[in-house]
Design a protein around this nucleic acid. Structure first.
Lengths: 151, 151
DNA sequence: TATTGTTATACTCTATAACTATA
DNA sequence: TATAGTTATAGAGTATAACAATA
């Protein structure tokens, strides 16, 4: 059967790629919900955990760098960092070379949270991957990379 | 090489499944950003578009049904429906049989938005899938289904 | 002039729980 | 007692744009 040339409200859901998008959304949402349940126990929101886990084992990063890694835009990032600073998990440090930049660094308390929560979160996620072989993981990774590439 | 028995902050990122999760998140985020750019032109947010596209070609649904389809919890859904009602895209209709229930129905304006925007959004998404064969789509779907299943 | 981060505005969504009216 | 939806509360994230300090 030839594919539809025209997409109408009626046949739209029957496009071949639609199940892929539906499953992509569901797979991600299932993961995100499970993931969130983990770091919420540490009192962190998604963006907050993202920042803490990004800053771990580094000498700190500028807002610009954190924004690039986490996909959080600068305006939002100011608020996220404010809340983490309020919790005494990070602090702002003036950059020496470029005085426009601010580096964000984990505090000792932030380091402890990272050292405890990051491995804990990974172990918590790892439990779900017990049934998958190394080959399957590699295939999944490549397929997802392909999907990301088309957007 | 034997896998690590203990997960520490240092070796955590080297777990075999981590690239899969990273790519899952990136693939979804890339899709979500592209998708959002589409329905934002229609003045809709993610949850709002989700509701409109869910109600299209139906005789309406109760809050409970919409919540199950879209994964929006009831408290949040009240607000989302309020905003859609304010835009005159949906209206609340008392259910005849069970007076606790409220059905949400697209208004004529809502229908027009659905008839125009849903196919438009699908066509917009379709452009990105040109390079993929039916077989690849099927494989991707199955793999994502598998991933969803583990969570 | 361009870039970094802050501030302000105005929404939108989220989680949670108490509440109402029905069943 | 249980369920459907509303309301209240308190945050938290988002987009956007104007802004100050610095390069």
């Amino acid at each position: 059967m030839a594919p539809d040339k025209t997409i109408t409200a009626e046949n739209a859901a029957r496009q071949d790629f639609m199940p892929v998008l539906r499953e992509l959304a569901r797979a991600y949402q299932a993961f995100a919900a499970y993931d969130a349940a983990g770091y919420r126990e540490a009192g962190l929101t998604g963006p907050q955990a993202d920042v803490i886990f990004t800053l771990g084992n580094t000498a700190g990063m500028t807002f610009k760098e954190i924004g690039e890694k986490t996909l959080i835009t600068k305006g939002t990032l100011t608020g996220v960092i404010d809340r983490l600073e309020h919790k005494a998990l990070v602090r702002r440090v003036a950059a020496e070379d470029d005085r426009r930049c601010t580096r964000v660094v984990l505090t000792p308390k932030g380091e402890r949270v990272f050292e405890r929560e990051f491995p804990r979160q990974i172990a918590y996620l790892k439990k779900r991957f017990d049934g998958l072989t190394k080959t399957e993981l590699k295939e999944a990774e490549q397929m997802l990379r392909r999907l990301r590439g088309i957007f």
